[in-house]
Design a binder for these strands. Structure first.
Length: 475
RNA sequence: GGCACCGUCGCCAAGUGGUAAGGCCGAGGUCUGCAAAAUCUCUAUCGGCGGUUCGAGUCCGCCCGGUGCCUCCA
C-alpha cells in the first residue's frame, strides 16, 4: 500500500511515485507578506506541513521549498500608507509569519526563498520566452503570449474561448490578447525597480514561482502545492511559463487545499470575513486550531466557527490527558526491555490504519477516528507490553500530524493562560474555596462542600478530586 | 453566462456498489459522599424524484438548495 494523492491536473487520485526514488521535490506557494496571516493561510501551511511530515515518515528525503512574495502592488501600497520602505513591510510580516505559523508547529521548509532574491533567474526565463517569441515587450511591460501555448487551461479545465467570453476579462490595449499576462511590469516613478533589458521594472506575480522552483528543484519536480484559489490563473500561468521555457511540464503532481469558510462563504481579505491567527490565539490554543484544521480532509471546505474550535479544544484536552495518563503508565514499566519495540510499533494495527488513511490522499479525518479509538484503548489498558506498543503507535501517529508539540503540563498551562485572560480568574479566591470545601469534606459536611463547589462552578471552575488532591481547571 | 464542487445523526465529519467510522451534545450504567475525569451501553438509511443493478449514500438523469473559480487571494 502506498501513498495516493489527488492530482488537480488529472482530477484523480494517483499513486505517488517520486521522480527519483525516496527523494521528493516539493514547492508550495507561500504568502504575500503585506499583512498578518489568517486562518486560510494556516490551513494551507498545515496541509503541506502534514504532507511534508508524512512524506518523510514513509522514508523520503524531501526538498521542500516555500516562497515569500515580497514585491507586489499590495506591499508597495502598504509601504506608502505607512510611510515606510517596502522592505520594512516585508521584514515585519515575514517575522510575524514565522511567529504565527511556528505556534502551529509548522516545520521549516528546506528553503524559504524570497522573490526579490531571484530577479536574475526570472529575467533569464523572461528573456528565454522573448527569444522564443512566446513573450513580447509592450510599452516597457513584458507579456506572455497565451496563444503560443496550446495547452493553456489544462490545469484548471478552462478553455480559452470560454475565458474570452467571460465577462471579467480585462480590456487592455497594451496586450495583444486580453488573456496575456505580465511577466515583467514597468515601474512607475518612485516604485521599487530592477534593471532589465526592457527597462526598469519588477516581476509579474507568476514568474517568481516558476523561476524559484526551477532554481531549487529543477525543470520538473514532484509536487507543487497551494490553495485551490491559485489553480487559475497563478498555477496555470506557471505551467505556461515553465513549459514555454523548458518544453517540459514543470510539475508531476499538483496538490490544492480547500478553503476555510465563514458561514459557508470563503474567508478572504476582500470579503473582510477573515480572522487573523493572532486574534484567534487570544481565545484558542494554536494546537487546537491545528487539530481543527486537520479534522477534515484537506480538499474539503471547512467551516470556521467558535463552536468548532470549542469542540476541538475538548478533543485536544482529552488527547493530552490521555497522553499524560499514558506517560504515567509507561514510566512504571521498563520499555527498553521490550524486544524489537520499533518493529512491533510499525506492525501495530493502529500504525497500519494510520498509514492506510494517510495513504488515501491524506485522509486526516479518518486518522482522527483511529486516534480516538486508540485513546479509548489506552485509557482502559492495563500496564503491559501491548499497552506500551499501542501507546507508542498512538503517539507516533499523532506526531506525524504535527500534534503533541507540547507536553500535557505545558498545554494545560497554556490553555489556562488563555482562558483565564478571557475570564478574569481570581486564583486566590479559587484556592480558598477549594480549601474550604476540603475542610468541610473532612468533617463530612457535604452541604457546605457542595456550596463551595457550586460557587466555583458559578465562576467557571471545574474541580476534580484525585488521589493526589483536588485539581481544578477552567471550564 | 462558462467551468467545477458540495448537500450524510441536533452540530462537526469519514464512507473502493454489498448493507452508515469518529468527535461534540444528549440518555442510562460503573466509579465517586455527591461530582468531575475515565469507562461501558444507546442514538441517522444518507436534499427530492426517477433510472441502472441481485444490491446505491456510493453510478446515470432531472429537480431543489449551497459554494468556488473565471479579478488580487491559501
Amino acid at each position: 500500500m502506498s501513498l495516493k494523492i489527488f492530482n488537480t491536473m488529472s482530477g484523480k487520485k494517483e499513486d505517488f511515485v517520486p521522480q527519483k526514488e525516496n527523494h521528493v521535490g516539493m514547492y508550495v506557494c507561500g504568502v504575500t507578506v503585506y499583512d498578518y496571516c489568517h486562518v486560510g493561510h494556516a490551513r494551507a501551511a498545515i496541509v503541506f506541513d502534514t504532507l511534508y511530515r508524512y512524506l518523510k515518515y514513509i522514508g523520503n528525503e524531501v526538498n521542500f521549498i516555500r516562497n515569500f512574495t515580497d514585491i507586489d502592488d499590495k506591499i508597495i501600497n502598504r509601504a506608502n500608507e505607512e510611510g515606510v520602505e517596502w522592505q520594512e513591510i516585508n521584514r515585519k510580516y515575514i517575522e510575524a509569519f514565522h511567529e504565527d505559523m511556528g505556534k502551529l508547529n509548522i516545520a521549516s521548509p528546506t528553503v524559504e526563498p524570497k522573490a526579490t532574491d531571484h530577479i536574475p533567474e526570472m529575467l533569464e526565463m523572461i528573456q528565454s520566452l522573448v527569444d522564443q517569441e512566446k513573450a513580447y515587450e509592450s510599452q516597457g511591460d513584458v507579456f506572455y503570449s497565451i496563444k503560443t501555448f496550446k495547452d493553456y487551461g489544462c490545469l484548471s479545465g478552462k478553455n480559452i474561448e470560454d475565458l474570452k467570453s467571460g465577462a471579467r476579462v480585462e480590456v487592455n490595449e497594451v496586450k495583444q490578447d486580453p488573456l496575456d499576462f505580465a511577466l515583467w511590469k514597468k515601474s512607475k516613478p518612485g516604485e521599487p525597480s530592477w534593471e532589465s533589458p526592457w527597462g526598469p521594472g519588477r516581476p509579474g506575480w507568476h514568474i517568481e514561482c516558476s523561476a524559484m522552483s526551477k532554481r531549487y528543484l529543477g525543470d520538473t519536480f514532484d509536487i507543487h502545492g497551494g490553495g485551490k484559489d491559485l489553480v487559475f490563473p497563478h498555477h496555470e500561468n506557471e505551467i505556461a511559463q515553465s513549459c514555454g521555457c523548458t518544453g517540459k511540464q514543470p510539475v508531476r503532481y499538483w496538490v490544492h487545499n480547500g478553503f476555510v469558510n465563514i458561514d459557508k462563504e470563503k474567508m478572504s481579505k476582500s470579503l473582510g470575513n477573515f480572522f487573523t491567527l493572532r486574534d484567534i490565539y487570544k481565545k484558542y490554543h494554536p494546537e487546537v486550531l491545528r487539530l481543527f484544521l486537520i479534522s477534515s480532509q484537506y480538499r474539503s471546505p471547512i467551516d470556521f466557527s467558535e463552536k468548532n474550535l470549542e469542540d476541538a479544544t475538548k478533543v485536544m484536552s482529552r488527547f493530552y490527558e490521555g497522553l499524560a495518563g499514558a506517560n504515567e503508565k509507561l514510566k512504571k514499566m521498563d520499555i527498553n526491555s521490550i524486544s524489537e519495540l520499533d518493529e512491533k510499533v510499525k506492525g501495530h494495527p493502529l500504525t497500519k490504519s494510520f498509514e492506510a488513511a494517510m495513504n488515501d490522499d491524506l485522509n486526516t479525518a479518518v486518522v482522527m477516528a483511529h486516534l480516538n479509538e486508540g485513546l479509548r484503548h489506552l485509557n482502559s489498558a492495563s500496564i503491559n507490553e501491548e499497552f506500551a506498543i499501542t501507546a507508542q503507535a498512538w503517539i507516533n501517529s499523532a506526531k506525524v500530524l504535527g500534534l503533541f508539540a507540547s507536553s500535557p503540563e505545558k498545554f494545560e498551562e497554556e490553555l489556562f493562560a488563555i482562558k483565564s485572560k478571557n475570564l478574569n480568574i481570581d486564583v486566590e479566591k479559587i484556592e480558598k474555596l477549594i480549601a474550604d470545601r476540603n475542610t468541610a469534606r473532612k468533617s463530612k459536611n457535604w452541604s457546605e462542600a457542595d456550596r463551595c463547589r457550586d460557587e466555583l462552578t458559578a465562576i467557571g471552575v471545574l474541580i476534580t478530586d484525585t488521589p493526589h488532591g483536588t485539581e481544578w481547571k477552567i471550564k
